[in-house]
Amino acid sequence: MHIHKYEKWWLTFGITCLVVFLSIVGFSAFHAGAHPPSAQVYINQEHVDEIAPFDNPGVRKVEGEEWDYEVVVVAAAFMYTPNEFEVPLGSKVKFIATTKDVVHGFQIAGTNINMMLEPGYVSEFVTTVDKPGEFLILCNEYCGVGHTAMSAKLKVVDPDEKREQQ
């Protein structure tokens, strides 16, 4: 099959870019561990409230893990429990969430913390919170009439500033 000379150049250029691009994506995924949330943890969605850690949702400091804090959230139509939490700026946080009924989203607006919550599955994402302020957490997967009523608040506070204020 005949391929024009310029088309060969064009395809060579394009495919080279593609290989470079995919290598960068692959490197940051497998070497730097920047994978999207892909936990394979299962739970009985009808008994979420009785199963740890969801029997006691909220923020807790942890020792001996790669992260400093765990934020445990339970979603159900149409609310998050708890609906307000606070973590110190610069800390490494593991977000752990699940749903008791239909599929919901867990998105912290203006950040890359964004995961689907599906019945029977636990979603997890570890990240360092490096932007101070108050962030809106919202459901970004249609779940019924109350979909846009479903929100919560994350406060990322600078520990130094907080001490000064007190």
Binding site: H35, S38, A39, Q40, V41, M115, E118
Partner: peptide, 14 residues
């Protein structure tokens, strides 16, 4: 379309 979903291993997503 399912990159942020639980239950699917990250290798297969990639």
């Amino acid at each position: 379309h399912q990159l942020t979903e639980p239950g699917i291993d990250a290798f297969w997503k990639f």
